[in-house]
């Protein structure tokens, strides 16, 4: 699926919808797709909506852009991305310095092929269980 970048203040950002489960309810949140992030980090107000006590999660630390470490609490949560439901590792932090939720590699980049097309201003996600166009072309070549 192709997700056009969202434009804010004249800048285009790779923001996509991610659903998280609260009981039987799916709630949609926006997340900034960041291939440089080891795993996803969401804001504590997301945890509050979901009724999660973040400090019950495993404590870990991540290094951010200025070299400092921030504490995160790791949880395994039900996530829906492009109608694909799976369990994902998500960290919550009181010290996330930006307002966005961050969608990082762990649990996500191993389930989807993700391509940032900066020129076209789209981010493309393909579930790994669906062959990509390149895979199909490879198969065609092998048939010939």
């Amino acid at each position: 699926m192709r997700y056009p970048y969202v434009r804010y203040n004249g800048r285009h950002l790779p923001i996509i919808p991610v659903e998280l489960k609260k009981g039987e309810e799916w709630i949609v949140f926006d997340a900034y797709v960041d291939s440089g992030a080891g795993y996803s980090i969401f804001h504590t107000d997301v945890a509050a909506i979901l009724g999660i006590d973040i400090e019950t999660g495993e404590e870990s630390f991540v290094v951010v852009g200025d070299g400092s470490k921030i504490k995160v609490y790791i949880h395994n949560l039900k996530v829906k991305l492009m109608d694909k439901e799976f369990e994902a590792v998500i960290g919550f932090s009181h010290r996330l310095g930006i307002g966005f939720n961050i969608l990082g590699q762990e649990s996500v980049f191993d389930r989807f092929r993700i391509c940032f097309d900066r020129k076209e201003k789209v981010v493309e996600l393909y579930p790994k269980d669906i062959p990509s166009k390149a895979d199909e072309e490879d198969k065609d070549k092998r048939r010939i």
Binding site: Y8, R11, W26, V28, G99, F100
Partner: peptide, 18 residues
């Protein structure tokens, strides 16, 4: 209804992330 909750970034937050 299904609810979507989105954060609207400040101008500073729209500069490239490192």
């Amino acid at each position: 209804e299904k609810i979507a909750v989105f954060y609207i970034p400040t101008e500073e937050e729209t500069v490239p992330l490192l």
